[in-house]
Amino acid sequence: MMKDMTIGQFYNTDSVIHRLDPRVKVIFTLIYVMSLFFSRNPVLYVAAFAVLVFYIKLSKVPISFIMKGLKALGMIILFTVVINLFTVQGAKTLVEWHFIRITDAGLKSAIYLGLRLCFMIIGSSMMTYTTTPNALTDGLEKMLGWMKKIHVPVHEFAMIMAIALRFVPILVDELDKIMKAQMARGVDFKEGNLMARLKKLVPIIIPLFVSAVRRSNELALAMDARCYHGGEGRTKMKPLQYKRNDRIAYVFVMIYLVMMIAIAIHF
């Protein structure tokens, strides 16, 4: 199951989008997601779809990879859509069966919501597909740098995020090892009712927790040994600097924003 989770992963390839400054991508993603809420006009959705297709094409991330990520959240999308379909009530009834009543407004609302969710998920996961976790962290740290003035530990948060990203695969591996070791001691995870199964998690969660604490202790020591002393006076190997392409990208983002506002007002 873990293998099918493509959401939040980085898709390693070289493209114009991959090379963009992470800040551009963060801002575009925010604007894109916001624009989906501007209006419920079909023209707006067509435009958003066209831009998304163009974005994906440029990024060279295969459609199959993106669809796999969407599929992982399929149940949630479906659930939301179905709830909407049944609960939003309009004037014209399309289907009626016992207590279920689907109206034109419900159908419309469900379709828009479904599209909006899909666009939102794809749009925002494009950011993680094309940006390494580190670049993303760097980008956020720099964008939120002004918050340091009001004593928000932005650097520390960024460091925590970067380290978490590094250790997630290690802990997933460890989890797998611990599960196997306990299976070798006769645990059958597929057996028993819900309570029994929950109880079987104890011999897995505790060693994993102990290991995480041990690892973090050792890592803290190793960071000390390498002269880490917070963000003060720290330089960067790869400082973020806007290049020509980033400026061009910003122009496109602005054009997109203006276009979407125009659509929302005019139609």
Binding site: N134, A162, R166, R215, E218, Y228, M237
Partner: peptide, 18 residues
């Protein structure tokens, strides 16, 4: 437990950055 960076070169840079 002593590698901080998510890429080899970025980890090597950690000390000098500090």
């Amino acid at each position: 437990n002593q590698i901080v960076g998510n890429l080899v070169e970025e980890d090597v840079a950690f000390g000098p950055e500090n």
